[in-house]
């Protein structure tokens, strides 16, 4: 930036605005950008949606947010105007999620919305899909999910420790947006699992609770890595209902290992569905046996599968991250994914 521009900007005025926005109680803890009517119009020029369309609803609270309300929050979060369709489509996706429509944002689990971008919009907007995909350092990845969090706070009126009852929450709760690295994935993108065509700009969302890494650079074959995933996936900690679900965020190297062994994404899902689980006795050691769900207690040796089925809804798979090391993530999904992706607009 030139000295001339630097000297035209008024840092004192900016600080006064930032402090004013904090004083109103609208912030998630970080500085906000002020929203004005002129800026709203500038953002709305990037979408064909009706500004009065209701895109976000809290059924439990009887509250909602329109396209215009969400736009205000996209501005405040630090988005650029052209990011707006991603924020809006992410809300469309969240509204299709049972957990998000219900009490998910009030939950003790404090789940985070994860936004996944596919198609040409990734390059057009600069959404990171490769090294350091979980951030920080990339404006769309950081600001798009923040706009969702601000909508929850201000449009739904969900303030921490009031109607929002998060026990500990998820680190970076409003910071989780990635693009899929379609160029280095051997498979169709998740948006195809979500019902769209490959190559379409799309947004997929779900609510998540935690990320656990599977660092396996010493594998000799695909089953070594699958067994490593199995060990992480089937642990008792996240197992609170009959079944649980988990997303795999595969780095390109692990994905390629599976594909070169002839495995499709569905083959990976099926392997994990068949192998992940615990016996009733193993679950009961953590007081998590499932006998309370049935009239006759399960024999101790009964094998309970972690997943309800081998569908993308229970085991969504996304490829992203650098190809510089064979490490991937198991992402704990809150409830399960709706199984739907949404065309960006």
């Amino acid at each position: 930036m030139s000295d001339a521009v630097t000297h035209e900007l008024d840092p004192d005025a900016a600080v006064r605005v930032i402090e004013h926005l904090y004083d109103q109680g609208w912030s998630d803890g970080l500085p906000l950008v002020p929203a004005t009517e002129a800026r709203v119009e500038e953002f709305l020029a990037h979408t064909d949606r009706d500004p009065d369309e209701v895109l976000a609803q809290s059924i439990a609270l009887g509250r909602q947010a329109t396209v215009r309300d969400i736009t205000v929050h996209a501005i405040m979060a630090g988005c650029r105007p052209e990011y707006l369709p991603v924020v809006l489509t992410a809300w469309e996706g969240l509204s299709a999620e049972r957990a998000a429509r219900g009490g998910g944002f009030q939950s003790t689990a404090g789940p985070a919305p994860l936004v996944i971008v596919n198609g040409p919009a990734r390059q057009e907007l600069g959404v990171n899909a490769t090294g350091g995909v979980m951030g920080p350092g990339f404006r769309p990845n950081a600001t798009i999910p923040r706009a969702i969090g601000l909508t929850v706070r201000n449009s739904f009126g969900l303030l921490p420790n009031e109607l929002e009852q998060t026990t500990q929450g998820v680190p970076g709760r409003w910071q989780q947006c990635i693009a899929e690295d379609e160029e280095h994935s051997p498979w169709e993108p998740i948006s195809v699992d979500g019902g769209l065509e490959a190559g379409e700009s799309a947004v997929t969302t779900t609510l998540v609770r935690a990320y656990e890494f599977v660092d396996n650079r010493s594998f000799r074959g695909p089953e070594d890595v699958l067994r490593d995933f199995q060990d992480t996936i089937q642990r008792t900690g996240p197992w609170i209902f009959r079944n649980t679900s988990a997303m795999l965020l595969l780095n390109p190297e692990h994905a390629r290992l599976f594909a070169e062994a002839g495995m499709s994404k569905q083959d990976v899902r099926t392997w994990l569905y068949e192998h992940c689980g615990k016996t009733e006795a193993e679950l009961e050691r953590a007081a998590k046996g499932l006998s309370h769900l049935v009239s006759e207690p399960y024999p101790p040796g009964t094998f309970h599968r972690t997943f309800a089925d081998a569908t993308p809804t229970s085991i969504p798979i996304v490829v992203a991250g650098s190809g510089n090391a064979a490490m991937s993530m198991v992402i704990r999904v809150f409830g399960n994914w709706s199984g739907k992706s949404f065309r960006l607009h």
Binding site: H20, A35, T36, E37, V40, Q64, D69, M76, S155
Partner: peptide
């Protein structure tokens, strides 16, 4: 100077 929008204005103030 343009007015700063109040983002909470859409949230219902509470039922009657």
């Amino acid at each position: 100077v343009q007015a700063i929008i109040d983002p909470t204005s859409g949230a219902a103030p509470g039922a009657t």
